[in-house]
Simulated scan of single mutants.
Amino acid sequence: VRGKVKNTAVGYVRVSTDDQADSGLSISHQETRIRAYCEAHGLELIAVVSDEGVSAGKPFADRRGGAEVLGMIAAGTVHHVVA
């Protein structure tokens, strides 16, 4: 991207099990860290997209949240993904 820095970002969080949701890997913990990262790096966080109970083995594009993130990238709404 020439001449203009694109600083918009989407956050992506995922857990595959209830145990992970209850541990330090919880959705809320991941979101807190993503928000802190974006703030520290001057990124405007447009949205945080979540896939709960989805295996990492499932292709990203086949996940509801993954498809949403890819759609935001394709539309030019965001230029960074923070996961």
Rank of each mutant, 00 (worst) to 15 (best):
D51Q: 02
S50Q: 11
V48R: 03
V54I: 09
E31Q: 10
D22C: 13
R33N: 15
S26E: 12
G24V: 00
G42Y: 08
T17M: 04
R35H: 03
G53M: 06
T32R: 13
S50P: 04
Y37M: 09
R14E: 00
H41S: 12
D19H: 08
E52I: 10
Y37S: 00
Q30H: 01
L45T: 02
R14C: 02
S16M: 02
Q20L: 05
H29C: 12
D51P: 00
E39Q: 15
L43M: 12
V54E: 10
E39I: 06
E31W: 00
L45I: 06
Q20M: 03
S26K: 07
R14K: 08
T32Q: 13
R35C: 06
R14P: 01
L25I: 07
S26R: 02
C38A: 09
L45S: 07
S55E: 11
H41D: 07
A21C: 01
V54T: 11
L45A: 07
D18L: 12
S55T: 11
S50T: 14
D19A: 15
D22G: 10
G53C: 05
I46Y: 10
E31N: 12
S55D: 12
G42E: 06
D19K: 14
E52W: 02
A21E: 15
S26D: 07
L45W: 03
R33C: 08
Q30D: 07
H29L: 01
L45R: 04
L43K: 11
G57Q: 13
L43P: 04
D22S: 14
T17R: 06
S23V: 08
Q20S: 05
D51T: 02
V49L: 03
Y37W: 02
V54L: 05
V15S: 05
S50A: 13
V49D: 02
V48Q: 04
V54W: 08
P59R: 04
S26G: 11
I27N: 13
T32A: 15
Y37R: 00
I27Q: 10
L45F: 03
T17L: 04
I46A: 11
Y37N: 05
Y37F: 15
H41Y: 08
Y37Q: 03
A21F: 07
I27F: 09
A36W: 03
L45Q: 04
I27W: 00
Q30T: 02
L43A: 10
D18R: 09
V54P: 01
S28V: 09
G24C: 09
A40T: 12
A36P: 01
L43V: 07
Q30P: 04
S26Q: 10
T17H: 05
A21R: 11
V15R: 07
S28E: 14
Y37L: 12
L45E: 10
E31S: 07
V15F: 01
S16I: 03
G57W: 05
S55I: 02
R33E: 13
L43S: 05
H41W: 08
H41Q: 13
E39T: 13
D18N: 05
E31K: 09
Q30W: 01
V49N: 06
S23M: 06
R35I: 12
C38Y: 09
H29M: 14
T32E: 14
V48C: 06
G42L: 08
E44R: 10
I27R: 04
A56H: 01
